[in-house]
Amino acid sequence: MSKFLVLQSDFGISDGAVSAMYGVALSVDPTIRIFDLTHDIPQYNIWDGAYRLYQTVSYWPEGTVFVSVVDPGVGSERRSVVAKTATNQYIVTPDNGTLTQIKKQLGIVEVRLIDEKVNRLPQSGESYTFHGRDVYAFTGARLSTGVISFEEVGPKVDVESIVELTVVEAKLEEDKVIGTIDILDIRFGNLWTNINRELFKELDIKYGDSFEVLIENNTRQVYRNIMTYGRSFADSHLGEPLLYVNSLDKIGVALNQGSFAKAYHIETGVNWRIYIRKIPKAGF
């Protein structure tokens, strides 16, 4: 293993929860290297947690162990698992949909249930509300540092048995592509869609082309306008909207030096649909 442990949660950093997870991991092995993916996942938002893993996991070395805790069902009958990805990283998490994007986009080759008789923090009593500390950080640190092997996590389960969230596929329909707003580029307010570059290219596009962009929430129209497809934000004027390819090779929507999401009160999820239609150039 790499001795790299990467933590993600919806805990925030205003109390001691994240620090306690660090402490547990360091108690397992003080030489472990611990990193934060983010602790700003919106509370209980499993979808965002799933997407941030997809955004990050494949860029870490093989053997890296991720602990993701967005767990509104903590203490219930939901399972605790460790998944091995096709790119040879490990994800320690509740089985509540957090693995959706990893399974779909990267691939999962094996999943094991966490055997809490063995892989639970000693002297953690009968508390069932902080599995992030007592089960996930403890198991993740032990796996990362080689105290246990992947096989010693617990019994193997069918990859197809893991819980998955609803995912809508982007599609080409006549002269337009249709997709969803999957996530926000939080800091800058850009919209990240599920429309990959290859599908978008089927509209016979090139930089500088104009497109009509329509965004709906369920059946309510939220935004409709014309914008340009650019290589980067510099290809538009200050405050102008544009289409671009984001860092995950999918189509994004932005305002140059502004927050598109805030300006038009746009959120994310399968109910937020986007339609992108190429506007033919006028002939003379």
Rank of each mutant, 00 (worst) to 15 (best):
S247F: 11
D48I: 13
S14T: 05
F130E: 11
T31V: 03
V118N: 15
N190A: 10
Y90H: 07
L143M: 11
E126H: 14
V167G: 00
E126K: 15
F188G: 01
D40M: 14
V81E: 13
R133Q: 11
V74A: 11
T129S: 11
T87P: 01
G63Q: 04
I215C: 10
G154K: 00
Q55K: 15
K176L: 10
D204E: 12
H39Y: 08
V70D: 04
L242S: 09
G75V: 03
V153H: 13
L99Q: 02
D48C: 11
P30N: 06
S210R: 12
S14M: 10
I108G: 03
D209W: 09
S247C: 01
F35M: 15
D95Y: 13
D40V: 08
S232D: 09
E152V: 07
V213I: 13
T98P: 00
N217Q: 12
S76K: 10
K281G: 06
S58H: 12
S210H: 12
F66A: 13
S80W: 06
V157G: 08
E110H: 13
K278Q: 05
L203D: 08
D36H: 13
T87Q: 10
G146T: 07
I186R: 15
Q105D: 12
Q43T: 03
P94H: 09
K104H: 14
L121Q: 05
R78C: 08
R112T: 01
Y22N: 08
F260H: 12
D95L: 09
L99C: 02
K117P: 02
E198W: 01
D36W: 04
L106H: 04
P280D: 13
G125K: 00
A86H: 00
A50Q: 03
L214K: 15
S236L: 12
D36T: 04
I183V: 14
T38S: 14
F211K: 12
A25N: 07
L255F: 04
N96C: 09
T268W: 03
Q8K: 00
P72C: 06
P280K: 15
E160V: 00
V135M: 09
I114P: 06
G16Y: 07
A17M: 10
I41L: 04
G252Q: 01
V18G: 07
E126D: 14
T98H: 13
